[in-house]
Amino acid sequence: MDTEREPVRVVVVDDEQLVRMALRLVIDGEPDLSVVGEAADGDAALTAVDELRPDVVLMDVRMPGRDGLSATRELLARPTPPRVLILTTFDSDDLVLEALRTGALGFVLKDTPPPQLLDAVRTVADGNPVLSPAATARVIAAATGPQSSHARDSSREAARRRLAALTDRELETARAVADGLGNPEIAKRLRISVATVKAHTGSLFAKLAVDNRVQIALLVRDADA
């Protein structure tokens, strides 16, 4: 990210004070990021966003009172919402899947190493979706339960038809997304620029009529089933 730009303004939402403190220490250690506020529940998060106008909200899912899902829904229904990056322990995959449906741009686990967490905040701030590899795997596992042989065959054929519209490079990008790689990692794997990865990812969203990277990963998974 261009360090000449104003730092990305972040609000951290988690009911555990120690978690908030740790995240603040990690994020504020970066010159291009700044924690401008904290909140311990969804209601406080809404108030903080109204007062502070952050670029990114790092949102816990499970909290007393208004939970992170409810707060995220309300935030994203506003005319100029912040980007929301969900922070989770995956103690309930159903909650994470519901968070995905609300329109959150990213998901990271609470035990994500600091460099990956910081990259996720930056990626979401730029308007790009992001999922950690562990998050991708867990969401796919939760979203795809046991199927009958007929249902599995139908899903596979439908997915393959949709993926057939892709170029070879777009398909390689889709498979890298399914592996949970971020744009820099995809660029390294495919030996192309990050800008080219972003262009291919944009084509994936348009050609596959999907809203996020998890849906791309699910299509790849179904096609390979």
Results as ranks from 00 to 15, higher is better:
residue 25 L to T: 14
residue 121 V to D: 06
residue 149 S to H: 14
residue 139 V to H: 04
residue 169 R to V: 15
residue 51 E to M: 10
residue 123 T to H: 11
residue 180 G to Y: 09
residue 162 R to H: 09
residue 194 V to H: 02
residue 66 R to Y: 01
residue 63 M to E: 14
residue 61 V to N: 07
residue 184 P to K: 02
residue 106 G to A: 02
residue 83 R to G: 07
residue 213 R to C: 07
residue 154 S to P: 02
residue 209 A to D: 15
residue 49 V to M: 04
residue 102 T to A: 07
residue 28 D to G: 01
residue 171 L to H: 14
residue 61 V to Y: 00
residue 173 T to N: 02
residue 134 A to M: 11
residue 169 R to I: 15
residue 118 L to D: 01
residue 44 A to Q: 11
residue 87 L to F: 12
residue 72 T to N: 03
residue 1 M to G: 15
residue 207 K to E: 08
residue 79 P to L: 05
residue 135 A to K: 00
residue 38 E to Q: 14
residue 178 A to Q: 09
residue 86 I to Q: 08
residue 52 L to C: 03
residue 181 L to H: 13
residue 167 T to R: 09
residue 129 P to G: 06
residue 197 V to N: 10
residue 5 R to H: 10
residue 129 P to T: 12
residue 155 S to Q: 14
residue 76 L to I: 07
residue 221 R to T: 15
residue 189 R to Y: 10
residue 89 T to K: 00
residue 22 A to N: 08
residue 130 V to F: 08
residue 200 H to S: 08
residue 221 R to S: 10
residue 147 Q to T: 09
residue 69 L to N: 10
residue 101 R to C: 00
residue 220 V to M: 09
residue 145 G to Y: 06
residue 64 P to I: 09
residue 78 R to F: 00
residue 206 A to I: 15
residue 28 D to P: 11
residue 61 V to M: 11
residue 126 D to F: 01
residue 1 M to S: 13
residue 52 L to F: 05
residue 12 V to Y: 03
residue 67 D to K: 00
residue 10 V to N: 06
residue 12 V to Q: 01
residue 109 L to C: 14
residue 125 A to C: 07
residue 27 I to Q: 07
residue 46 L to Q: 05
residue 159 A to Q: 00
residue 37 G to D: 06
residue 131 L to K: 02
residue 96 V to G: 01
residue 115 P to T: 08
residue 181 L to T: 02
residue 166 L to P: 15
residue 164 A to D: 06
residue 99 A to T: 10
residue 202 G to V: 03
